[in-house]
Nucleic acid binder design. Structure first.
Length: 483
RNA sequence: GUGGCUUUGGUGUAGCUUGGCCUAUCAUCGGGCGUUUGGGACGCCUGGACCCAGGUUCAAAUCCUGGAAGCCACGCCA
């Protein structure tokens, strides 16, 4: 019994989600803590998820015309200081390199907290004419932000991995079109790849990226703790940065103009959202599309009957080659142990194969998202596996959506609102948008806007009063706590 | 950055209040041998730890000071 306690997830998601999360990421072998706070080792089990996200998103943006490049991770101090709002926003969390070997550097170098400055500096040299536009580059890289004291793996790292797209357009319309195009891709990464429900919307005035005209966001809500995760943002920067960095082009009428700029990013935080949303008290649940190995075969090796079972297992592995099936034929562990081990690690499908199955010409298949086992004839396995994977994806997404829907309520009074936030709900409210009221609400309840959802952009606010101030509402907003 | 709690083999822990009997408990884990195997098997052999730096003391895992890291509540962000 003691053994069960130590290997299994002992915390309950619905009782102590932080402790549960800590156990899942360690027992599913996703990360290793290191000697540097906030910097984790992304072990293969979690890095494979990032690779899936990269492959999926990279294909989308390349098809759209974006190209990848790589810019240095060091930013000279004077370059970082060039845009005032920008340095104000990031100075508290920049890590600095001050020495090369034993000698002090004349100008210290920032380790990029984001690359707007480096890339805008390059763009100012590269863009001369309208013919150079649009300019659309992306980079996959690491980022360092040293501000916070209490990191949470994936959700709040000091060093994390992301992609940052930085683009320039001739006109405001073209630029804004791209903002929404990228946001759609982000939403697809969430729902089509990771099976997590995404709410698309605009950030409130108080929450938008400093220096941006507006910020769009994908938000994923964790029903168990009532907190929203900002999973990716796509910013319309307007001409603000271009002007600060002297990016200019000559238009068709021989006039000098500043281009319209966007920036957009998703990060390894998505992995944290995926874990929070799908995993359960047995451990990790990997959405099938981000699991490199779709299935594991656990052969039941009874003494004297190992040969035919192992042989059949290998044959099945070969037949199902495209699913990168593993065989767990470790003789030192009992089958029950292996079942639990693969459940903790989130393996989508487990195929049990023993002498009895071979006699019957079947395998016993379990999927990670439901408890029922299914017997499948050998000859049907190859066609059945993709159906199960697809069904699993759909089931994960729809049950997560149901949880979000159950946790979302519309309220119109501040009293109801306070109660709902206490009950870990996400509140749809009519709101008279202002930074001041949002700050006050945050102060009093701990909740702030997740976003102004696009879904309710056209919902009428005529004759509707703000839930907080009682003034005429200007928009519909989601308020909740956030990660 | 603020407040609270915590840190002992790879992992989970006992010991700490009342310093000595701790070259540190139990389990798991790694290596070996054997017997097992349809939901966390078992026997024997073997390997492995007191977060770091100072201090108090005849004597420190244990007491004191500082630091680091982890967890929780808040703040900021992808």
């Amino acid at each position: 019994m003691a053994k069960v306690q130590e290997l299994a997830i002992t915390a309950k998601k619905e009782e102590n989600i932080s402790e549960w999360y800590t156990q899942v990421i360690q027992k599913a072998d996703l990360i290793e803590y290191t000697d540097v706070s906030g910097c984790i080792i992304f072990k293969p089990n979690s890095y494979q998820v990032w690779e899936s996200i990269q492959q999926y998103f990279d294909k989308k943006i390349k098809k759209s015309g974006v190209r990848n490049a790589y810019f240095p991770m060091f930013i000279p101090e004077k370059l970082l200081n060039k845009e005032e709002d920008h340095i104000d926003g990031f100075s508290a969390e920049v890590a600095w390199v001050t020495h090369g070997g034993n000698s002090e550097l004349k100008e210290r170098l920032a380790i990029r907290p984001t690359s707007e400055t480096t890339i805008a500096n390059a763009y100012s040299k590269w863009v001369k004419s309208y013919k150079d536009l649009p300019m659309r580059l992306n980079q996959w890289c690491n980022i360092v932000r040293w501000e916070f004291k209490h990191p949470t793996p994936f959700l709040r790292n000091r060093e994390f991995l992301w992609q940052e797209g930085h683009t320039l357009f001739e006109t405001k319309e073209e630029a804004e079109k791209e903002v929404y195009e990228i946001l759609d891709y982000y939403s697809q990464v969430g729902e089509d790849l990771l099976a997590i429900p995404i709410t698309k919307g605009k950030k409130s005035v108080g929450e938008k990226f400093a220096g941006a005209d507006f910020t769009t966001t994908i938000e994923s809500f964790v029903a168990e703790d009532g907190k929203s995760i900002q999973a990716g943002t796509s910013h319309a920067l307007g001409q603000n940065f271009a002007k600060a960095f002297g990016i200019e082009f000559l238009d068709k009428d021989q006039k000098k103009q500043a281009p319209f700029q966007n920036s957009w990013g998703i990060s390894t935080r998505l992995i944290g959202a995926m874990i929070m949303i799908h995993s359960d008290n047995k451990g990790l649940v990997l959405p099938p599309k981000v699991s490199y190995n779709k299935a594991v075969i656990v052969p039941l090796l009874f003494k004297g009957k190992e040969g035919p079972v192992l042989e059949k297992a290998k044959q099945i592995q070969k037949d199902l080659e495209e699913f990168n099936v593993l065989i767990d034929d470790d003789k030192k562990m009992s089958p029950g142990f292996k079942f639990s081990k693969w459940e903790i690690q989130g393996m989508p499908i487990r195929i049990e194969l023993g002498p009895r199955d071979i006699e019957n010409g079947v395998v016993t298949v379990s999927r990670r998202d439901i408890t029922e086992k299914e017997e499948i004839k050998f000859e049907n396995l190859k066609s059945r596996i993709p159906e199960i994977l697809e069904d699993m994806h759909n089931n994960l997404l729809s049950s997560a959506k149901a949880k979000v829907a159950n946790s979302t309520i519309e309220v119109s009074s501040y009293d109801d609102f306070k109660q709902a936030i206490e009950d870990k709900k996400r509140c749809l409210v009519p709101w008279a948008e202002s930074k001041e009221s949002e700050d006050e609400i945050k102060e009093q309840t701990g909740a702030k806007t997740s976003c102004l959802p696009f879904e309710f952009e056209n919902k009428s606010v005529e004759n509707v009063k703000c839930f907080y101030s009682g003034e005429p509402a200007t928009c519909w907003a989601y308020f909740c706590k956030s990660h």
